[in-house]
Amino acid sequence: MIDARQAVPGDAQELMRLRKVMLDGMGDEPAPSGEWERTGAAILEKQLSDPDGMLAAFVVDRPDGTGLAACVVGAVDQRLPNPRDPTGLRGYVYNVATDPKYRLRGYSRACLTALIDWYATRGVSAVDVRASPDGEPLYAAMGFRRTDEPAMRLYLPAP
């Protein structure tokens, strides 16, 4: 059995390293390093320090050394209820990432399973994820389905 544990603030740097691994795999070119990584680590350190917080990460440690082999980060969003979602609690999976050296061992599945269990204990009734082509088979195998909801995004200029 694969042991996925809940991340602690000290995992923030490794979580951001794996986030970059995920982003690198989604684009034509690697994501540039920069201030976003330090900002993300600071956010994770703060959010993971709150045991009753609305953000959680689950990780699998490298079996042959220090650091993380895989992770998932997710949050709970309180939305307004509707007939199909009476609590309005929605889970969102920010990233699922596995270090290339450790892929195809079930680590991401273990992390995602732990996150889904965490959502269930908080009364979340729906979980959203944006699936890359590589990740979609895992999500589908775990019960995620495409929705009919259209999505659009507006980027605002930086202040």
Rank of each mutant, 00 (worst) to 15 (best):
D52M: 05
Q6I: 15
D148C: 08
G34M: 08
A42I: 03
N82M: 06
D24M: 08
G65I: 14
E37G: 00
K101E: 11
R145W: 00
P133W: 06
P159K: 05
A140K: 12
Q13T: 11
A97I: 05
P83A: 14
G40Y: 12
R5P: 00
L23K: 04
E45D: 02
V73F: 08
E149C: 06
V93H: 04
R103H: 10
Y155M: 09
V93F: 01
L68F: 01
L18M: 05
A114W: 09
L68Y: 04
R105Y: 12
E29Y: 05
M142P: 09
G27R: 13
G25D: 10
R109Y: 04
N82Q: 04
V93T: 14
V60C: 08
L15R: 08
Y155F: 08
L44F: 03
V73P: 00
A126F: 02
P63H: 07
E14I: 02
A75F: 01
D52Y: 01
G74Q: 09
G74C: 03
G106R: 13
S49Q: 10
R105A: 08
V124E: 12
A41T: 03
P133S: 09
T121V: 11
A70N: 07
M26P: 02
E136V: 01
G40I: 02
N95F: 04
R105N: 15
V93I: 14
Y102N: 10
W118P: 10
Y139C: 02
R62A: 15
G40L: 02
A151M: 09
A7L: 09
G40E: 05
V76G: 01
R90C: 12
C71A: 06
P100Q: 08
A151E: 12
M54T: 13
Q6K: 10
V60E: 00
R90Q: 15
D134K: 03
L89Y: 13
P133F: 06
L115W: 00
R79I: 10
D24P: 01
A57Q: 00
K101R: 12
K101H: 11
V73E: 05
T121K: 01
L15S: 06
L68V: 14
R84H: 13
A56Y: 09
A70E: 01
D99P: 15
R79W: 04
D24C: 07
G88T: 06
